[in-house]
Amino acid sequence: MDDLKHYLEYILTPSTPVFVVGALIVLLVPILVHFYISSATPYTNLPSILLIGPPGAGKTSLLTLLERGDNAVPTHTSQITQSVELTVSTDGGIQSFRDAARDDAPGSHKKFMLVDTPGHGKLRESAMAKINANDPLKGVVFVLDASALDENLQATANYLFDVLLALQKRMGVGKTSKAPHAVHLLLAANKADLFTALPASLVKSNLEAELGRIRQSRSKGLKASGVAVGEMDDEDNEDWLGEYGAEKFAFSQMREFDVEVDVVGGSVLEGKVDKWWDWISERV
């Protein structure tokens, strides 16, 4: 009992050791807590590339191909987003994704996250949320099925419209505060191995035409429930994709918002995705 009293007295009397220990605690605890928390969530800081697109386009196949480096595995409809940690070369030591997938790839490399998202209409919420999240998002790869674009043009373009609009708004928000870094979009026209597949140039022009039509009809569409009448005019302007009031839509209009759009064909099945990989490597 006496011991305890003594001890308390010592601690409560101002003296150099007590000050030093106290100061150390005050300084160190926040730092340690910080390290504890940041080590508990190790992956949040990796740059990420988002795979997005309509169902059955080949997103998951592409993901497995890039992860394995040799072949894609069979896939079915995805229900959840799936991230995979991949590496790109920073010094040009690795040329293709095939080498990058090896554990003992030469040269120095950098890790990033490739994020696959489900394409089903009901499950797009989370993918769209990722565009707006504060993650270090470096690029969006919109995968589409070039062999069935005729039938799916409307559905594909509708989703693409939402994605582009989200990217545009993302930049718009930044104008008031600090500008967010630009996020570019790659249109990966997959399944070029099939004979019905359209070449990239046609994919581009068909999508541009359809996006233009969607833009027209959306601007005239019904207001969404919950939007008050007064808000109408601002809304109009904000939901217009690309150059305001322009007759035709072209991907080049997205440059105004710092969104570069590239259209590149390829085939996951045949492993012809090198150009996509190069695009991804450049962004990371």
């Binding site: 089903h120 797009r124 009809s217 959306r218 569409g221």
Partner: peptide, 18 residues
């Protein structure tokens, strides 16, 4: 959200045009 979101969204004017 998942329950209420339709599988494919409807753009009536666009569909009429098509």
């Amino acid at each position: 959200t998942k329950m209420l979101t339709p599988t494919s969204s409807l753009d009536l004017l666009r569909e009429v045009d098509a």
